[in-house]
Amino acid sequence: MLRKPSKSNLGKMLGVTEEIFHKKIKPKIKKDFSKELNEKNIDNPDIWLDEDDKIILVKPRDNTRFIETDLSIYSYK
C-alpha cells in the first residue's frame, strides 16, 4: 500500500530530524532523480513510499504524475 509519510516521519526513519531531512537528504533525492523529474515537469515532489519503503516521487496535488524510483528510502541512511 502506498503512503505519504510526513517529513518528520521520513526523518525518523533515517534517524535524523525533519530539518536535517529537508536540508540534506531531500535535496539529494531530488538531485539523484533530477533527469526523471525534469522529464515529467515535477519541480518539488512529495515523497511517498510503497510497501517495501521504496521511494515514489509524486507531483504535489497531482497524483497522476509520479516516478517509481525502485530505491529504498533507507539507501539515504
Binding site: 536540508k23 539523484d32 533530477s34 530505491l71 539507501s75 541512511k77
Partner: peptide, 17 residues
C-alpha cells in the same frame, strides 16, 4: 548514500547555513 552509492557522484552539492 542514495542512487549512486558506491559510484562516483555525477553532481556536486554544498550547503551554506
Amino acid at each position: 548514500s542514495g542512487r549512486y552509492k558506491g559510484q562516483p557522484s555525477p553532481y556536486g552539492m554544498g550547503l551554506l547555513e
